[in-house]
Each structure stands twice: as C-alpha cells, then as structure tokens.
C-alpha cells in the first residue's frame, strides 16, 4: 500500500547548507589535527597545551553545533 505523501520540508538554501557544513566540520578538523596540538606549551593554569586545547573544544563544539541547529530551524521555518 503506497503511503500518503508527507509534506517535505523546504530544502535548505545553498547558503544555509554550506554554513551548517562549515560549522560542523570546524570542530572535527580542530580535533583531527593531532600533531598541531600535541605539545606542552603554552600552559594554562598548570594545564599543558595538549590538555587545555582539547578541553576548550569540549566547550566550543556545542556552540558550533547549536548555531548549526539554529540555522536549520530558522531556514526551515522560512524567513
């Protein structure tokens, strides 16, 4: 039995798609670049760079993801 069609949400504009992709890729690249952050200096409050850099991305990633969420929500609800 064929299913009744659902209303397909309006596609994201190209600009929004690119923006969301960039927002989500930045944290991935930042943490994939191990050789760049695997060092002891500069230290912060006694934390070697390797450790505080990754902790920093624990805090930054949700911001990037949340903005991506907001962009999609805004773009989908139209204007």
């Amino acid at each position: 039995m064929p299913m009744p069609p659902v209303q397909r949400p309006t596609r994201l504009s190209t600009g929004a798609t690119v923006l969301v992709a960039v927002l989500l890729i930045i944290p991935l690249v930042a943490l994939a670049a191990v050789p760049i952050y695997s060092r002891e200096t500069p230290e912060l409050w006694g934390f070697p760079f390797f450790y505080w850099y990754q902790l920093l991305w624990v805090l930054l990633t949700p911001l990037f993801t949340y903005v991506a969420y907001a962009v999609i929500k805004r773009s989908r609800s139209g204007r």
Binding site: Q54, W57, Y69
Partner: peptide, 21 residues
Amino acid sequence: GAVSGFFAVPYTVVAYPIIFI
C-alpha cells in the same frame, strides 16, 4: 596516559557533529 585514555575526550566531542548530521 594520553593515547589509551584521553582520546575519549575528542571521541565524545566529535561524536556529536556526526550524530547531528
């Protein structure tokens, strides 16, 4: 130390953009 333990931190961070998609 770090290689066998601390990798769990980037692991549980990069998981979310992936899930989001």
